[in-house]
Design a protein around this nucleic acid. Structure first.
Lengths: 215, 215
DNA sequence: GGTCTTCCTGACCGTATGGTCAAATTCAGA
DNA sequence: TCTGAATTTGACCATACGGTCAGGAAGACC
């Protein structure tokens, strides 16, 4: 009768602090939302993964929508963080190269979050449309300016910055969102360290050479 | 065969043929599954979109899973069709260029199907895992051989064919799967003909130059 | 100990969903 | 016109889901 404990990440103390309880639930929710989608996920399953009774989830997160929203916001923060790397660079080779590395690292370390984000956008961004229109739009426009400056300075070929950004997002996210397909084509095993390095290296080689940012 | 009178979404006669009824339902299902995901889609909503009573859906497709499976298989067929273009080419510039065009056309014309496929893979391919392991694996290995030959012949740079294929899939699919995000960044409007051409052109420029397949 | 706040949870509820069914309707061919 | 198969459909059912609630348990502070 192993009903309560099982494989619960944290189930030692009887009472939890708000912060750790929320973190535990958010982590379980991210996993379940990634695997089943918003509609396919159930509060009961999230509760099981977190090792808590369902009613406890509703104590911290009144509704499923609210819980989902927080999961999406969390990954968006990580996403934005990586984006900063873009600015700290001197030129396209360094900036875009580092950005690819950072985004690939996110795809590897936060694959579930990436999937939730992808799912959200794919279904028309019902809960984070405002983020797309404000934060993401601003960030994108800022980066476009940077790229245009690089082009004007002759440090890379004159390509449309928008489509370059889309290519960067698409290619790096692909390793998270389509990770299962990649694993299957890899004989059923996840990419190992070496293969991830090869992926990053190949992507950087193709894109940096493609935009004429290599010497 | 050529005896189908007035094939419109709403048929004139009270009774439908199996073929057209199934096509109508599959089309509605593709749309709803794309917008809501498998878990979020309901048979009632699909029925409403198709303009049929729910019980009628179950007459043609006994279960939701079965209906979903057919939708996924349908888009996979289209996907494979485009893949043929790869072979009919003489070299990388022509072959990969045409493949990008074809996949971009699919992203534009079959955005819903692309989303369903992406969703399916993202959730671990519960219904088409066998396709990944057989058809897709075979196709991929075949294309890897072609690319390796091109490399051996000195017609493109020595990059890992796998990661090149992933980049092609990722970049082209992105315009369907993340179409909503792209539209939002485009001021809320879908890309027009000119913008789609620009997208294709930019992608081809970057990738073909990136793999050293241009003169 | 007493008391207040925070946290925990089993039991419960209304609703929506996938699926069933049997009766009605349509239609092709005899 | 008659007959049997194919199709259509409203009504129905069991289940599972998101969410509620009342009462109990665990600390914190005096």
């Amino acid at each position: 009768m192993a009903e309560t404990p099982a494989t619960s990440p944290k189930a030692t103390s009887k009472k939890m602090r708000r912060q750790e309880a929320e973190a535990l639930i958010l982590s379980a929710a991210e996993k379940v939302f990634a695997e089943a989608g918003f509609g396919g996920a159930t509060m009961q399953l999230i509760a099981d993964v977190a090792g808590l009774p369902k009613a406890n989830l509703h104590y911290y997160f009144p509704t499923k929508e609210l819980l989902y929203r927080q999961v999406v916001q969390k990954i968006f923060q990580i996403w934005l963080q990586a984006a900063d790397i873009f600015d700290q660079a001197d030129g396209p080779e360094e900036g875009i190269g580092a950005y690819i590395d950072a985004k690939m690292e996110i795809s590897r370390r936060h694959a579930d979050g990436s999937k939730v984000w992808a799912s959200e956008v794919m279904h028309g961004a019902p809960v984070i449309q405002d983020y797309l229109e404000t934060t993401l739009t601003d960030w994108t426009n800022g980066r476009i300016e940077v790229i245009e400056r690089w082009i004007a300075e002759g440090r890379m070929a004159p390509i449309d910055p928008r489509h370059l950004l889309y290519m960067l997002w698409a290619t790096t996210q692909h390793y998270a969102d389509f990770g299962h397909q990649i694993d299957t084509l890899n004989g059923g095993s996840p990419l190992d360290d070496k293969q991830w390095e090869a992926a990053k290296s190949n992507i950087k080689t193709i894109i940096l050479r493609g935009i004429g940012a290599t010497e």
